[in-house]
Every structure is written in structure tokens, then in C-alpha cells.
Design a protein around this nucleic acid. Structure first.
Lengths: 129, 129
DNA sequence: ACGTTTTGTGAAACACGGCTAACTTTTAGA
DNA sequence: TCTAAAAGTTAGCCGTGTTTCACAAAACGT
């Protein structure tokens, strides 16, 4: 409910980092996203109160609900980044811009677009920078 | 400079409305975008001070600079809406979601994407709802 | 020409999402 | 173990872009 673009970004980064390193701390998220730890702290409080994450003593992890959103965002991220790279956009720019495109579509529209463009599924989060 | 997503939306709507009806007033923009006239008033003040629009007694029009941005946004809008419609998304949803996608890409990336997907140019603003 | 309706503006408030700064708590090294 | 560094939190601020409400100014019908 009421999940904004920035909230989706936080969930996605927790997902990617947890695949990459297991335990995820706020500071990892802050570094990954390039925001301050204060921003992460604030965002985590909101996400927790909405049931997307749970905070341990010194780690954060996704709830089932948060994981679902995060996976979906990551899937879209890979899709758009791959699409842009195939179009000739540099990996760095594609990643930056794909980050925004991934929040624009409903689930239904995204599936239709993917079906039409017929791209193969890409590998998991550990393959990305 | 420093044109945000909302600023681009305002410029685009002025462009579309001017093609459709000639003279554009603040209230037309407000209705088109679904915001209050106070919001339009504020936004127009900013856009005018940045040289994107000029305000007459009771109308708004784009400067050359504003027109360039607006045309570019409209072009992208049509591109993404067409893409989504071809994928099977309803016209209404495609229009809503295309509205967001059009702000995600740099000029360069957009051109590359368009070249790869090889879509034909679409008609002008008067063909849209 | 007058009054009503429509349109535009200004002030104050809010939500959001970021920041810094100061503080607390935890971790970890010597 | 004790102290210093790292991590997390809290409070307060800022910029953006909305809103509502009150008001001003223009347009229009009769």
C-alpha cells in the first residue's frame, strides 16, 4: 500500500544486497543508493510500519510482501537495462535510466510489454554491479 | 534550466492544448492535468522566470525554448503510448503510464531506443484525447 | 452598467524525501 | 577491557509540488 518510487528503490536494494552478501545493514543500503544513513533510517521506519521490512538489531530484511515487490522491481530493472543496452546505451547510463523506468508501469502493462518485445529472462541480482 | 518532471508536463500540456484550441489559459492546463489552478499559477511563475513560457493578460504561451521541450516530450509520449498500445495495453492506461515513461530517458537514449524499436512517427497532438 | 460567474493570484499548510548535525549504541582493535 | 571507530537514530531544516481558502480581477449576460 502507498509504496512510492523511493520505497521501491529501497526494497530493491535490500533484495540485491541480500543476494549478494546475506545480511544487509542500513549502511549498506545507504552506500548502494548513495543516500545518507539518516535517510535510510527514516525510510526503513516507514517501510517497517507498512509491513515491507523487518528490522533486527543490526540488520534489515524483507517480509514476504516486501520480497515480492523487490523481486518485481529487480526483474523490471533488468528488463529495461537490457533493452537499453541492446539499443546501444552504455551500461552505466542504462542502469541509471532503467532505475526510473521500472517504476512507471503497472504489473499488467509490464507483462504485456515484455511479451511483445519477447526478451529472455535475465540472470539474478548477483550479476549486476 | 533545472526542468523537473512536473515542469515538463506543464509545457507538454500547453503545447497539446494550443494545437487543439489555439489560446491556452491557466484553467485549461489545470483541467487537462487534473491539478488546481493555484498549482498552475505557481508553476507558470516558475516556468516564466526560467524562460519557458510567457504569460499574457489571460493566456499562456510557450517560448521557443519551451516549445522545443514540449515537442520533445510529446514525441516521447506518443512513442511510449503507441508502444504500450501495440503491446495490448488499453489506450487510457497507456496514456497514463506513458506520461511517466516519457521523463525517464535522456535524449540520446531515447533516440537509440526508438531507432532499435523502429517505430514510425506518429501524428500530431490533435489526435490524442 | 451592474452584478454574477469565471479565472487568476497569494498566503499558509502539508506530504515527501532528501540533508546535516548531534547524539546513542554497537562493534571491534590494542 | 576500554576506548575509538562505525553504525543507527532523532531532530530540525530545505526544496518541490501539491492543496485549500480567501481574495482580486476580468468576462459576460441581461
Amino acid at each position: 500500500m502507498a509504496l512510492r518510487e523511493s520505497g521501491e528503490d529501497y526494497l530493491e536494494s535490500i533484495y540485491v544486497l541480500s543476494e549478494r552478501q546475506g545480511i544487509v545493514r542500513s549502511i549498506d543500503v545507504a552506500e548502494y543508493l548513495g543516500v545518507t544513513k539518516a535517510s535510510v533510517s527514516k525510510a526503513m521506519a516507514t517501510l517497517e510500519s507498512n509491513g515491507y521490512v523487518e528490522m533486527g538489531k543490526r540488520d534489515v530484511h524483507l517480509t514476504e510482501c516486501g520480497l515480492e515487490v523487490a523481486r518485481q522491481m529487480w526483474e523490471r530493472h533488468c528488463f529495461f537495462v537490457g533493452l537499453l543496452e541492446d539499443a546501444g546505451v552504455s551500461a552505466e547510463v542504462a542502469s541509471q535510466e532503467g532505475c526510473h523506468m521500472e517504476h512507471c508501469l503497472s504489473e499488467e502493462s509490464f507483462e504485456k510489454l515484455r511479451a511483445m518485445l519477447g526478451r529472455e529472462d535475465v540472470a539474478g541480482p548477483t550479476t549486476e554491479a
